[in-house]
Computed example of a mutant assay.
Amino acid sequence: MNKLTPLLPQHRKAAGFAPSGVIEMLLLAYIVAAVLNYAVGNWIFATAMLAPLAGLFCWAQYTDRRDRCKIGDQIQVSLGPHSGMEGAIVGANKGGTRLTVQLSSAEQPEPIDFFNYQIRKVKPTPEPSQPAARD
């Protein structure tokens, strides 16, 4: 079967937007309940409700900044015709949404632009060290 041939409709699955919407609505209801507790005067209970959310928010911001690609990072292309190729980021637009990548392939000598969701960071592998020559 050709990879570009779409699957029949009976094989399609939901993309996950409905469960995501339910989670967002539950989170919103949780925040509204905490704010209402503040309004009623039960500030200790409201603070106890909002503290885990504040911690989760800070953790999400930290991991987002840590995982964001920047110039000089080693990457691997995960989507598109260059999927599986590796290279290094040589440029980026101001928002960091479009990255210019120099692929380490001989087939692609010029840099290519990718959207940030098309690539993922890879950990650089250390160069194998040469054993010291014995005299």
Rank of each mutant, 00 (worst) to 15 (best):
residue 130 Q to S: 13
residue 38 Y to S: 03
residue 111 P to R: 09
residue 42 N to D: 14
residue 61 Q to C: 10
residue 62 Y to V: 14
residue 22 V to R: 13
residue 117 Y to G: 01
residue 68 R to F: 09
residue 95 G to F: 08
residue 45 F to I: 15
residue 117 Y to T: 02
residue 35 V to D: 08
residue 89 I to E: 00
residue 93 N to V: 02
residue 124 P to F: 01
residue 98 R to G: 01
residue 38 Y to F: 15
residue 105 S to W: 04
residue 48 A to G: 15
residue 85 M to T: 02
residue 18 A to H: 02
residue 113 D to I: 14
residue 64 D to H: 07
residue 109 P to M: 08
residue 122 V to S: 04
residue 133 A to N: 13
residue 85 M to D: 05
residue 29 A to M: 13
residue 98 R to E: 07
residue 80 G to Y: 06
residue 127 E to C: 01
residue 43 W to Q: 10
residue 1 M to A: 11
residue 73 D to R: 02
residue 5 T to H: 03
residue 8 L to T: 07
residue 46 A to P: 01
residue 6 P to D: 08
residue 121 K to T: 14
residue 51 A to K: 05
residue 98 R to N: 05
residue 92 A to Y: 00
residue 111 P to T: 11
residue 98 R to P: 00
residue 25 M to D: 03
residue 81 P to H: 07
residue 51 A to R: 03
residue 21 G to V: 01
residue 18 A to K: 07
residue 121 K to F: 03
residue 93 N to I: 02
residue 118 Q to A: 14
residue 94 K to I: 02
residue 92 A to G: 07
residue 89 I to R: 00
residue 6 P to C: 04
residue 24 E to Q: 11
residue 31 I to Y: 03
residue 118 Q to L: 07
residue 127 E to N: 04
residue 124 P to D: 10
residue 115 F to K: 08
residue 82 H to Y: 13
residue 73 D to Q: 05
residue 37 N to E: 08
residue 5 T to I: 06
residue 65 R to I: 15
residue 6 P to F: 06
residue 74 Q to V: 12
residue 83 S to Y: 02
residue 95 G to D: 14
residue 135 D to S: 15
residue 35 V to N: 05
residue 96 G to C: 07
residue 30 Y to C: 04
residue 21 G to D: 08
residue 90 V to W: 04
